[in-house]
Design a protein around this nucleic acid. Structure first.
Lengths: 329, 329
DNA sequence: ATGAAAGCGCTAACAC
DNA sequence: GTGTTAGCGCTTTCAT
């Protein structure tokens, strides 16, 4: 494998000059520049990235922590991150945490060992105290996540506003008994609950404890939860869900039980995934600009790396959610 | 930032011994081993990956070429690759080609510059002659792709068999006039067409040229193509599609036009994505074990890297597709 | 069991 | 405009 020294020898120039050509520096004569290029081609030379990284103390690599690759919302974020990364010469390393605290921490080793320049979290499992020490080693950005005491830039969606909007919509449609299905108990979920109850309280409605459901993530969860709701003596007439998959599964289960959506029961999705407009009736849902927060987060990341922006200081960029009214409510 | 030399100085040992401890080599006394571990913790030392990579001539990094992150089938493959990668201490670099020949070639620079140990293609845009030279620089695996003259390991799905199965099913349901929608004109598409016509010919059916549609990828394409089909004077009674999104959009458009699926027109999907079982009627489709081929490909990749397997020699592993009969046919 | 030292391939400060 | 050279941080012979 040819090295820079080989190119230098071949051309009779020094390694320094060859390096200057490689890196497109000024102060190299046209002649030598061409000479070097010819030699590189002739010898099949390519600069060794590990050597450059060692010397430059950068890798142009970013670790992106994501719970599951098969979750369309997160790949949307990833897509947004990738777009900006690509434009700026960065590569992305995929870190699938499977929502495990342990794995999340393990991936942070990539930062300590300088395998990556920094990390973008699209979801966060550990408490901030666990993460905080790692901020010494490079920029950390929270994307789609928020921690009250995190000392880093955060790009988030206004979940409070989003779920308020959706809930208010249900109430305006005349619903008085609302079921609420949530996923985990993360900060994100708390915000959604906040928005939900804000709308509920404003309207002076009551929400019974038995109308609140936890750990509802998947389509199967949706079916199970829907059946629980059906079996309730005092049954809600509208359901606020934490995702379109859950909502879609519920719509289907409702139809299977001979119920009309939204006539007998209204179902509100979240995310506005492709599936939302494919099912019958089309899902009313809350659109989250996933690609957008991804791009923003990556842009901020780059600014931090370049020192254009302080990286160990809290900052919050918040984007709004919007209600997409279709047929299920 | 602490280096190995700092740890050596701190403990009064040599860098060599510290290195041995880091890499868990034998022939280091218990005492010194503990001493070094304490020092590393004390100094906040972490081995520098770039330096190790340079020295070891490996990065434990694999580039995965994928057309679009937002395509669920490809993230399924990615998930399979990731699983095996994780088990073996490899990290994945995402390379989104957006189906561009140019980008695909650019990503191969990662191989030449030794930024990655090798490459897994989950789709391939260029001709094999373009790719072939890169095999000098590290293992290249084709996953979900096949090139007749490729001199590398390939893991593929038996598309011929899969589409034969689906087409035969349509014919058995009594359909005589079949429409065929394909995506690109890749090897993969050719195989599907082969299976389609195999079944068609066996049954002695005729397929008019106007029943064959190209470049049908997305939901919008599905809607457009379906309307073209509707406007045909001699209209097919069944449609073979290249993906569940397309099929789902067609089902929806059919219903919008007052047609019954499968009564008036049967629609066959491909992939068995979550959406297939969420729409009404549920999609009959062809299941492709995406995660499975991903895992297999990564396993083969590792064998190639370890020299357990020849890497510049054609080999083909083929997995079968299966028909999932639901309600749309 | 431990250490000395060469060298992986590259860049940049400094000299001319 | 070009060359010399000292590292970047690590691993691995080869001694002892």
């Amino acid at each position: 494998m040819a090295t820079i020294a080989d190119v230098a020898d071949y051309t009779g120039l020094s390694r320094a000059t060859v390096s200057r050509v490689i890196n497109d520096y000024p102060h190299v004569s046209k002649d030598k520049r061409r000479l070097v290029h010819e030699a590189m081609k002739e010898l099949g030379y390519f600069p060794n990235t590990s050597a450059r990284n060692l010397r430059n103390r950068r890798t142009d690599l970013v670790a992106v922590l994501i719970p599951r690759l098969t979750n369309p919302f997160f790949t949307l974020i990833l897509d947004g991150i990738e777009k900006v990364a690509e434009e700026n010469g960065f590569q992305l390393i995929i870190c699938q945490t499977k929502s495990s605290k342990k794995k999340e921490l393990e991936f942070l080793n990539l930062l300590q060992t300088k395998q990556v320049d920094g990390v973008i979290f699209t979801s966060i499992e550990n408490d901030w105290e666990q993460i905080q020490p790692y901020t010494d080693h490079g920029p950390i950005i929270l994307c789609n996540e928020y921690h009250h005491d995190a000392t880093v830039p955060m790009v988030r969606l206004n979940q409070v506003q989003g779920s308020y909007l959706g809930t208010k919509h249900l109430i305006e449609r005349g619903h008085q008994r609302l079921a609420y299905c949530m996923g985990s108990t993360s900060g994100l979920s708390n915000d959604r609950r906040k928005g939900f109850f804000q709308a509920v309280n404003e309207a002076g409605l009551e929400v019974k404890a038995e109308w609140i459901f936890h750990d509802t993530y998947t389509m199967e969860d949706g079916v199970k939860t829907f059946n629980k709701i059906l079996s309730l003596t005092e049954r809600p007439t509208a359901i606020f869900t934490g995702g379109d998959e859950v909502a879609a599964a519920m719509v289907k289960e409702a139809k299977r039980n001979g119920l009309d959506v939204p006539g007998d029961i209204a179902i509100l999705g979240f995310d506005d995934q492709p599936i939302a407009s494919m099912i019958e009736p089309e899902l009313t849902t809350i659109y989250q600009p996933g690609a957008e927060i991804g791009s923003r987060a990556m842009t901020i990341f780059i600014d931090c790396l370049k020192g254009k922006r302080e990286r160990v200081r809290q900052s919050v960029m918040e984007l709004p959610l919007s209600l997409v009214i279709r047929k299920s409510t």
